[in-house]
Design a protein around this nucleic acid. Structure first.
Lengths: 159, 159
DNA sequence: ATAATTGCAAAGTCTTTGCAGTTTG
DNA sequence: CAAACTGCAAAGACTTTGCAATTAT
């Protein structure tokens, strides 16, 4: 569990439950269906700074384990929908599998080139530098410019 | 055509030909085969700051057009080999297709969210800021930390 | 001559789509 | 009830792999 989504009401302790998810869906004109609640709560459970992104297969597997079966195709369709409305961010990890995570406050990602861990990096520190650096290119950074850094996570750094 | 690869000898005008590619391959203990020369020259031809990355299919297609047929599977195997030795960088564009480009000087990429153009961004400006920003996380950035910025390219920015 | 590399075809993944049946608002 | 959504199965797109034939050193 972890914290705060964009305009999402949340419980005092930072976690968020079914009701919050329902609100989130309605805010975007989407219907509240069991599959969507299941998928979103799976993502919410994964919301730790490390490995907060899951692949469609991982989401599906977690739901199976919880006896909240949702078809894989539905997972894909749901992710597609949620990405479109901006509730979820897609991220290509190993160039071949997409992973999805709740779109929290603007942040970037650091992928460990050794163990594959995905670490969330708050944007505030980077944003300014990025904006300035990209100015010369005429390129307009999108608000939530999700970067992907590559390197070694703290753990692999030791080994 | 464009410029300078890592430790590659190059012609005075910055372009580089078959001999340079041969040298490049030998430096990495790889054999100089027709398919490899073809694939690498295709990448070299794409080396402009914009859209310098090509997908396996694009590389294959260009080679077919040039009557230098190489099997698609060979293109994939070649890219895999070249990425392993560090001559080429892989980049997932739309989360679902890998694209490949010559590993030139350290640089990052800016992908236009509208037209898909990939623009090369020199690293020097960003590197310092990145190193500093990631310090707090305990994450060790890899040397060639290839970032992927997202936003609008100069052209789409107008439209 | 020997080991690396290729082409071809088959197999594998991950993802998308058609459609009839369900469910939500 | 109408529109949105789902499950299932089939299709698609991209990538990998087995193996015999070819090629570089």
């Amino acid at each position: 569990m972890a914290g705060m989504q964009q305009g999402i009401s949340e419980t005092p302790d930072g976690s968020f439950g079914d009701d919050d998810i329902r609100t989130l869906l309605r805010e975007h004109g989407l219907r509240c269906t069991a599959p969507r609640l299941a998928v979103l709560s799976a993502l919410a459970e994964a919301e730790s700074p490390v490995n907060h992104h899951l692949s469609a297969a991982q989401i599906h597997q977690r739901l199976v384990e919880q006896r909240r079966d949702v078809d894989l195709a539905t997972v894909y369709r749901t992710m597609s929908t949620l990405v479109r409305v901006g509730v979820v961010h897609a991220l290509a990890v190993d160039e071949n599998v997409s992973t999805y995570g709740l779109a929290a406050q603007p942040h970037h990602h650091a992928v460990c080139t050794r163990c594959g861990a995905i670490i969330e990096v708050p944007a505030d520190q980077l944003s300014a530098a990025l904006a300035q650096a990209s100015q010369g290119t005429g390129f307009l950074l999108s608000d939530q410019a999700g970067l992907t850094l590559h390197g070694l996570c703290p753990e692999c750094r030791r080994a």
